[in-house]
């Protein structure tokens, strides 16, 4: 039964990936743009899960890596080869995570949640202050690569983030992370190197959003600091992960597809209404469906017929 369901999952994921891969061949710019958005959220949400879902350290500041990556690419624009700049964006984000990780990850529970938000806002306002002190309110990018190139780069990042989460989820390292999520003291007593594990998970979860930010910066010719450090991005990532639920790389995919469609329908036309709906969805899922869509599917699979089939075996 379980094997059947997981092969259904693999089939659906492979079909989805194949569809997204050939999308630019026949889709117009609007459709490709939607596909790009979906891929971006997949990359961001899966990388967020590497720290936050695995360890329970819920980060409200994932956007900081995205923003740093975008900022690096924009600042080095036409001075450094673009591919190098994007790799550098990932390295910068990872280095930032490594730098702040030790003090920040000592803070637990809800304090970590608000601290992660505070760190992201602090970086945003610091860069804003630096930019306005330097006299640059915004920057303009000429000669960015065309949509197809951006799309395939994002496709690679989305696949990389999904494979990263799958790899971490199944590894010994991943089980260590889960054990410290359930009980940090007990995990430490059993010999899980919690400080090292948390830091490694944080650094791993930072690199991909750094590169995603760098790639997305190319999408518009106009760069504003407030936009690439918009807390909305962190909020959307959390909402997608919670809506998706589950404990591995599948749940977030469900959440991304669900919310990306909703936001495509509403965000550009009625952003305020979209936010109201997003807040309501968050409340409904926390109260009624804490295990998300993945949990709902799993519950369906455990329905009387499935249980009977299992019992008969």
């Amino acid at each position: 039964m379980a094997r059947l369901r997981s092969s259904a999952w693999i089939l659906a994921a492979a079909a989805g990936a194949a569809f997204l891969l050939v999308l630019p061949l026949f889709g117009n710019d609007y459709v490709v743009g939607v596909g790009l958005t979906v891929l971006m959220w997949i990359a961001l949400t899966q990388s967020w899960c590497v720290l936050s879902k695995m360890t329970g350290y819920i980060s409200l500041g994932h956007v900081v890596f995205y923003g740093l990556g975008a900022y690096l690419v924009v600042v080095t624009w036409q001075q450094v080869p673009l591919a190098l700049a994007i790799v550098g964006a990932g390295l910068l984000a990872a280095a930032f995570a490594a730098l702040v990780g030790l003090p920040v990850l000592r803070v637990r529970g809800p304090y970590f949640v608000i601290l992660s938000f505070g760190v992201a806002e602090l970086v945003k306002f610091s860069i804003m202050a630096a930019e306005s002190a330097g006299g640059t309110a915004s920057r303009i990018l000429f000669g960015a690569p065309d949509l197809g190139v951006i799309y395939f780069a994002m496709f690679a990042l989305a696949v990389a983030a999904t494979l990263l989460l799958m790899g971490v989820s199944r590894s010994r390292f991943g089980h260590g992370l889960r054990s410290l999520r359930e009980n940090e003291e007990a995990a430490e007593t059993l010999g899980v190197p919690i400080v090292r594990y948390k830091l490694l998970a944080f650094v791993l979860s930072a690199a991909i959003p750094g590169m995603v930010g760098g790639v997305m910066a190319l999408r518009s010719t106009y760069f504003v600091v407030g936009q690439v450090f918009d807390p909305m991005i962190s909020i959307t990532v959390i909402a997608m992960a919670i809506i998706g639920g589950g404990d591995d790389a599948r749940g977030p995919l469900l959440g991304v597809v669900f919310l990306a469609l909703l936001s495509e329908l509403l965000w550009s036309r009625a952003p305020l209404l979209y936010m109201v709906i997003l807040g309501s969805i968050l409340i409904v899922f926390v109260l009624i469906l804490p295990n998300g869509l993945a949990g709902l599917l799993a519950r369906q699979a455990r329905s009387p017929t499935a249980v009977a089939a299992k019992a008969a075996r």
């Binding site: 529970g109 809800p110 909020i235 919670i242 807040g279 968050l282 109260l287």
Partner: peptide, 22 residues
């Protein structure tokens, strides 16, 4: 309770801000 209530209040915060803006 801390994690769940934080997310609930967070949802509430988003709703209040945007309803006020609307």
């Amino acid at each position: 309770v801390e994690a769940n209530s934080l997310l609930l209040f967070f949802g509430l915060s988003i709703i209040l801000q945007n309803v006020a803006a609307l």
